[in-house]
Amino acid sequence: MANQDIPNQEILLDMYKKSALAKINDENARRVIMNGSLPMIYYSPRGQEIIPAAISVNLNNSDSICTIYRGMHDMVCKGIPLEKLWGEYAGKSTGTCKGKGGPMHITHPETGCMLTTGIVGSSLPIANGLALSYQIKNEKKVCVAYFGDAASNIGAFHEALNMASIWKLPVVFVCQNNRYGEHTKFEKATSVTRISDRAAAYGMPGIHVDGNDPVAMYNAAKTAIDRARNGEGPTLIEAMTFRFYGHVFGDQDGYMDKEEKAKAMAEDPLPKFRAWLIEQGYASEQVLMELEVAFDKQVKEAIASALSAPWPELDELNIDVLAAAQH
């Protein structure tokens, strides 16, 4: 744990709850894919949960996020209702998007989950637009753009950082550096050793942080979000982490460095965080176990309800393509 200001017990437990729920949700997702009850193309964020947990405890419900295909943890930490999330995974009418968008395109504005994109880099420019609106309307709201390490090599990243900086937009760019972009190693595709260094080119602070360290990640998130909310402009956070289950769940990850992966998995941030909370007296084993059992039950109920929910009517193909007739 970083030798920094430690957030209070309430915040720490909130962070644990969020990240544990995301972890348990992921375990169930992999389970239902493996047992064939809910096959889907799934980009597991397992290993990266501390990042959105630390971000989300600094956000209000009215703040928003724009995330990517590997964004389940981001949205669960933001508070997306599980039943609707699973309804969408199952392609059912009860899903967040009536089954039309699917896992790569979850949207739930009520909890501020404004966008899930399947296009690398596209979360950043759109987050700028949400932030621009908050700024013009003086709403004191913040938008967080989540994206991966490899996304920092596409034009959209660079254009968005520059624009956010010149307009001092209330946006936080959160790069989850999990060391790989699809099958390509970070070092092979990226000209800098630290993505956070790229912030300097756009005149904004760049924070390089261990995204698996709850205390360090909390402080980075708080600094950046406070700054955005106070009208001081954007920040680029590069949160170092690792993805445990390859690019798309089921890929054989032969392109990955076996030792690197084994080491990262041995240092799973969730059990570490859990042990630390108990050791430091923030929570008892009993309390955390009860939480986890309740979360697992909640997730399983959401899955069961998604599986038994009705499919969308075929007429949905003609609905939501354009707005309903206006007068």
Binding site: G91, G99, K100, G102, P103, H105, W311, P312, L317, V321
Partner: peptide, 16 residues
């Protein structure tokens, strides 16, 4: 195909 983005849900995708 109909004038519609490719939908996710299996029955919708098949109809598309």
């Amino acid at each position: 195909a109909p004038s519609c983005p490719v939908p996710y849900s299996r029955p919708l995708e098949l109809a598309f």
